[in-house]
Design a protein around this nucleic acid. Structure first.
Lengths: 237, 237
DNA sequence: ATTATCTATAGATCTATAGATAATGC
DNA sequence: ATTATCTATAGATCTATAGATAATGC
């Protein structure tokens, strides 16, 4: 009705429109997938959240699976790249004597910072990855996008722990990534367990602990397979 | 046609029929939910896997959500109960000086043994729990069924680490459960990463390491917040 | 003249219910 | 006489496509 009064034509170029729509769609899908998973989200849900028509999703994305994969891929390169750089810098700085803790800090802190400082979209992506990491489809995407950075980490750990078996290195990493994914998921479980003392969004508190915790874990594997030196109490035999 | 020849009427009582159908349905649902999640499984999928008609599911279960919750609940009491017993036994045996590692072994090994020795159904349940633990609905069920056993574990850790803050205890548990869930999920990711050296089904290998690894992690939190005593190399400041 | 967005709609599922049939139970 | 299982079907979604409309682009 009141046409002309503060009429904002905005005049966006098509490239801008396209970029903006794509980003809005990916953001909405990322949020919803992080909450409900691939099958728990309908294209209509995504469209409604963006405020566009469902069919526009098909204009930009071939189908739901492609949308899902592009959500994964969009930020995967950023986090992977940043961690590779951080690991390379650490390797250079540490010279001949890299430590487990140093490598883990480069790997973990870099990632936690990215999510925490990146605001809601990055926090959603973190939850998305965590949710997806425990699924068959997700594991495939993890392999595809994150193998290089993980193998880089393990190569430094190998140098820090030259007498360790390969199995110990991989199982150690397996524990680390489990703890990390549980952090990224932010399910609120620690909030309830601790009666409100801890908050699953509180990545700084995680960052204070996770590197040191995991590094000590790795070091303890050294004699995990050796015959126990201390007397065992209440041994069954 | 060839009636009479080895005709096996089998004559099951209704109670038996009911129990058997219920178990078959729950097993099938457990398997499928572990692979595809709540929304990735249709009632038809479950029915087909069992070889019955979809509508029979509605006869036994109110709706899909109830089926899901009953899958979770069926074995939750068993694993929770076993671990509580194990923790109580450990507490008794350890007397005045419980250790972190002792408590973690009771908690973790008891569970890993249950799944590993329980065969496919229990392994599926483990994957089901892991898959579900990173989701909002799942976290709620975890709270509901597993809070007592977790709080029991933490109460022993509190006695083992009397000078620790509550936050350290809860965050430490947060790391432990992440590593455990990543194990139970069995996504095959470690298989690929390690080029076939490690296998995500290989719970005995996990059991060899996880208790010692996590116990050392807890102990390292002691001075995690203290100012670093060793000189820091390449400090930015 | 091209590209972004919407309208209309087909076809496939999916959940859930009502009611019929075929077993077991005393 | 009760309980387990199946048949038939309603109603709601959901994905995906074809084709129309409304913008931007030279």
């Amino acid at each position: 009705m009141a046409e002309g009064i503060s009429a904002k034509p905005v005049r966006r170029s098509k490239a801008e429109q396209r970029a903006e729509s794509l980003e809005q769609i990916l953001d909405a899908a990322e949020y919803l997938f992080s909450k409900h998973g691939l099958y728990g989200v309908t294209l209509r849900d995504v469209a409604q959240r963006v405020g566009i028509h469902t069919t526009l999703l098909h204009y930009y994305f071939k189908d739901k699976n492609h949308l899902f994969e592009e959500v994964f891929a969009r930020r995967a390169g950023v986090t992977s790249g940043r961690r590779i750089v951080a690991l390379e810098q650490y390797e250079k700085a540490a010279g001949k004597n890299p430590t487990v803790e140093g490598a883990l800090h480069a790997f973990l802190d870099t990632d936690l910072d990215l999510y925490y400082q990146g605001g809601p979209p990055w926090m959603n992506y973190a939850a998305f990855c965590a949710r997806v990491s425990n699924t068959p489809e997700g594991a495939r995407l993890m392999d595809q996008h994150f193998d290089p950075v993980v193998l880089k980490l393990i190569s430094i750990l190998r140098r820090a722990l030259p007498d360790y078996s390969e199995e110990d290195l991989f199982w150690g990493y397996h524990f680390v990534t489990g703890a990390l994914m549980n952090t990224l998921a932010r399910t609120g479980r620690i909030d309830k367990l601790s009666a409100g003392l801890c908050h699953s969004d509180d990545f700084p508190e995680v960052k204070k602990r996770i590197g040191k915790f995991m590094a000590a874990g790795f070091l303890a594997l050294k004699d995990a397979h050796a015959a126990p030196r201390k007397r065992r109490r209440k041994s069954k035999s």
